[in-house]
């Protein structure tokens, strides 16, 4: 093969090429006036805006507000989810009491509760945090609950034959056995929380990423909208990386990770 052909072969098998081509076409379209700025700002403009917002501190301040909402909402939601899953997973009466309620809750789309939450909690921070908390309960609950119920009975029996008490069984066998499921639930909760954040933040916000987007919409600043979309995507990636890092440490005993 000639070097030229080899280059073409490499290019046609490169996964980064098509996004780059799209980006170049977008930029060219904007420069040539085919894509008006009020429809979509050019990539170069978006990068410049991002840089400007980062320098001025506008981005960090609003990101912090959004981060606090999601952190507080998740902390509340995950805590409730874990407690309910423990109650339902570890006792028969708990299951009878809790599980039907959770299944009912599951059928209600969280975002449909927005009007009710506004009536109850007003338009400040509370309904935003409450929506995120409410939405993030279920994935953690469902996964941890089934993880607890799915713990290997043979391991449980083996541990029981050595005279472990009920509390010791929970601590040494059931909870570590359910941990992988909890982490899966946590990952779902994180992505649901970001989704709900996007909508919740647009309720009459005076700060946060949603506020930035709303404001930009009023002034038709498509560059700021695109910057915020990028930040949301970045939040999703960061959340996933966080859970992966926790998994890498907490599940070090798994062979797939051990052999790496």
């Amino acid at each position: 093969m000639t070097p030229n052909r080899r280059l073409i072969a490499r290019l046609t098998s490169a996964r980064w090429l098509s996004p780059l081509v799209l980006l170049a076409a977008w930029e060219a379209g904007s420069r040539l006036g085919l894509i008006p700025e009020r429809t979509l700002a050019a990539p170069s403009k978006v990068v410049a805006t991002l840089w400007g917002m980062a320098i001025s501190g506008e981005l960090a301040a609003n990101l912090w507000v959004s981060f606090l909402r999601i952190a507080l909402g998740l902390a509340i939601g995950v805590t409730i989810g874990v407690v309910l899953a423990l109650v339902a997973g570890l006792s028969r009466q708990g299951e009878v009491a809790v599980d039907p309620l959770m299944q009912i809750k599951r059928t209600i789309p969280t975002l449909a509760l927005t009007p009710l939450f506004i009536v109850w909690f007003g338009i400040g921070e509370t309904p935003k945090v409450a929506l995120i908390a409410f939405a993030s309960i279920f994935p953690v609950y469902l996964n941890l609950y089934s993880g607890i119920r799915g713990v290997d009975l043979r391991l449980l029996e083996g541990a029981r034959s050595f005279g472990l008490s009920r509390a010791e069984l929970v601590f040494h066998v059931i909870l570590p056995g359910a941990l992988p499921s909890l982490l899966v639930g946590l990952r779902y909760s994180l992505s649901v929380a970001i989704l709900v954040l996007v909508v919740a933040e647009q309720i009459n916000a005076s700060a946060g990423l949603g506020y930035l987007i709303n404001n930009a919409r009023d002034f038709m600043r498509t560059d700021i909208i695109v910057v915020c979309l990028m930040i949301y995507a970045g939040l999703g990636l960061a959340a996933d990386a966080l859970v992966r890092a926790v998994e890498g440490r907490a599940l070090a005993w798994r062979p797939s990770i051990v052999t790496q």
Binding site: R154, L155, E157, G158, A159, S161, F162, G163, L164, E168, H172, V173, P176, G177, L179, L251, W253, R254
Partner: peptide, 23 residues
């Protein structure tokens, strides 16, 4: 009394010595 099962039934999330020390 103590049991050894056909499948060793070690807890995979505890290192070997902690499995032995269990309980």
């Amino acid at each position: 009394r103590a049991v050894v099962f056909q499948d060793a039934r070690l807890l995979p999330w505890k290192k070997v010595w902690r499995n032995v020390a269990l309980g």
